[in-house]
């Protein structure tokens, strides 16, 4: 059933590609902004799904890498680095380094311990960001200059930024798709199903998990970079554990191992937040119980509607 999910992805990306041409007919910059927001969420969620869905590593601190990426970019911008490619390199290096340190420690454990440790490291990152007094501390930092592509401001707003984010989303989708089918992805799934067995097949499980953790962190970091470009603002709130929780919600709503699901989940969350939030100020009073009920009664959530073969954990 691989084909069906590819067709579905083609439709999804086709629609996203058309949006900037369709939406101005309804005269809405606001909607474009919402779609960018959802796509950024989807990028981070797909990267988290590589960990949870394929690797079986439930991280509750993934938003920290979005925060680290955003701050790496913001600090670069504040210090006069405006070339987006250079900022990308910086972001990848910084998130990669943070992931290497925290991952090597966190991956000494697994299961519940891993979950709690990633949560703790995420919180540690959050506190570190709040202590960056020179870059806004608790309040965050508004950025007066944004990244440029070879001196051009095309990637700063409007359709330039939209297509940059869409392109990144596609690259993430495609990259994780490739990884999931690759030799590496297969080892990762074997380690998820039975780490001892994978070890006895000759695989140093922790090493493979660490590499997956690095990749996921770096992708999340890139979404942070783009987030800065879109919001023109960074704050430690990006790295709170509630944001990590939101990412898990997106991944689970979309279905484990399903990249299309992660995109739908991201749009679902953003729409809920905006639409529900515009009608009822206290929308969380509804959202919270909906999550509980979803787990209790509709296991699989909206994912059930779009389950693809590899979403069930089968080898792709």
């Amino acid at each position: 059933m691989m084909d069906r999910s590819l067709v579905f992805a083609a439709i999804l990306f086709g629609l996203l590609l058309l949006m900037p041409f369709l939406l101005p007919l309804f005269g809405s910059e606001y909607l474009i902004g919402l779609i960018i927001k959802a796509m950024l969420l989807a990028i981070a969620a797909i990267s988290l799904d590589l960990l949870i869905g394929h690797g079986g590593m439930v991280s509750l601190g993934h938003a920290a890498f979005v925060g680290v990426g955003a701050y790496a970019t913001a600090i670069g911008l504040e210090n006069g680095i405006e070339n987006i490619l250079l900022l990308l390199v910086i972001t990848l290096a910084v998130t990669g380094f943070v992931a290497l340190v925290t991952g090597s420690l966190a991956l000494r454990t697994s299961g519940v311990y891993f979950l709690m440790i990633t949560l703790a490291f995420g919180q540690m990152t959050y506190f570190t960001l709040t202590s960056l007094a020179a870059y806004g501390g608790d309040d965050g930092l508004t950025l007066w200059s944004l990244a440029t592509l070879f001196g051009s401001d095309i990637v700063q707003s409007g359709s330039g930024l939209y297509f940059l984010v869409l392109g990144t989303l596609f690259a993430t989708w495609w990259g994780v798709f490739q990884i999931s089918r690759s030799r590496f992805g297969r080892v990762l799934r074997a380690a998820r199903d039975n780490p001892e067995r994978a070890e006895v097949m000759g695989y140093a499980v922790t090493r493979y998990r660490l590499i997956a953790y690095l990749i996921a962190a770096m992708i999340a970091g890139v979404s942070g970079l783009l987030l800065v470009q879109h919001a023109e603002f960074v704050s430690p709130a990006l790295a709170t554990w509630q944001r990590s929780g939101d990412l898990i919600v997106v991944v689970v709503l979309g279905g484990l191992g399903s990249r299309n699901g992660a995109i739908l989940g991201a749009f679902f969350i953003v729409i809920i937040e905006e639409v529900l939030g515009s009608f009822v100020h206290e929308w969380r009073l509804i959202y919270g119980p909906v999550l509980v009920l979803m787990v209790l009664f509709a296991k699989g959530g909206i994912a059930d509607l779009f389950v693809s073969k590899d979403a069930k954990g089968r080898a792709a």
Binding site: V112, Y287, G288, V290, V292, V295
Partner: peptide
């Protein structure tokens, strides 16, 4: 554990908001 995280996360969201209301 994932289901447990999700459901208890929902409870947190609800009760925090309820306290606020």
């Amino acid at each position: 554990h994932l289901d447990q995280v999700l459901a208890t996360f929902g409870i947190i969201i609800f009760l925090n908001e309820l306290a606020k209301v």
